[in-house]
Design a protein around this nucleic acid. Sequence first.
DNA 1: GATTGACTTGGACTGAGTCCAATGTAGGAT
DNA 2: ATCCTACATTGGACTCAGTCCAAGTCAATC
Lengths: 124, 124
Amino acid sequence: MTSQRRVVAEVLDGEHVHLTADEVHARAVAKLPEISRATVYNTLGELVSLGEVLEVATDKRAKRYDPNAHQPHHHLVCARCGAIRDVHPTGNPLADLPDSERFGFTVSDVEVTYRGVCPNCAGG
Amino acid sequence: MTSQRRVVAEVLDGEHVHLTADEVHARAVAKLPEISRATVYNTLGELVSLGEVLEVATDKRAKRYDPNAHQPHHHLVCARCGAIRDVHPTGNPLADLPDSERFGFTVSDVEVTYRGVCPNCAGG
DNA sequence: GATTGACTTGGACTGAGTCCAATGTAGGAT
DNA sequence: ATCCTACATTGGACTCAGTCCAAGTCAATC
Ligand SMILES: [Mn+2]
Ligand SMILES: [Mn+2]
Ligand SMILES: [Zn+2]
Ligand SMILES: [Zn+2]
């Protein structure tokens, strides 16, 4: 456990955020000025491998890193500003995929992304 | 309607494929050797705007272009080889997101991506 | 045949991410 | 306390997907 890794973990800890790697880097630099982008990517990759952090690809640009890995959840994304909320739909979408629609796959996971417009962007 | 656009439309027509822009370009070049990448991107963008083609981001690399835009469906992706199948789960995931989980958003769309291992990759 | 505006082209450019050789360092061994 | 070594970190070059743009082409109209 190096100071670099500790700083990356601290950045992700606490709030339920969905930061890009560069946002993580910017916040890490605030605490440890010389930390490099490469180390942030390495550490994020390790956290993902350990299952401590999830990668989410809600927009089609940068991946986002989600520290809320232990409570299964899905995402609601604003199509205008990109805001992301964790959501917990009822029902189990895996159960909604009949065998006849599995084509012999062993299905292990499902990601659900809701899209819409957030109250801010709706100009309420 | 130029010959370039016609060729891009032809590449996407027919089978239910999920090609990347560069794969579309490669197949287009086979029919019209001098067609440029820029034109393929332009044409794909227009088809997407017109609602004739969908962009899907099942893997975290290149976007894929899906000509099956008129029948709503979701995707089942092999985590090993990237194979993509169209699937039609039962139930409506929008109905599974209660108002209390909408946070004031106007939710208009939902994407479901199932992940697993295809029969080929399972080494059956 | 000239004009014109839309379409196409190639190449430069960007953003996100990966890779790598060189350097630094934590912490166990002596 | 010092030395060693395996591992972590660094910066920069590189890749890949995609965007942008100025210049060139082309087809339709006049
Ligand atoms: Mn989340
Ligand atoms: Mn499809
Ligand atoms: Zn918004
Ligand atoms: Zn497979």
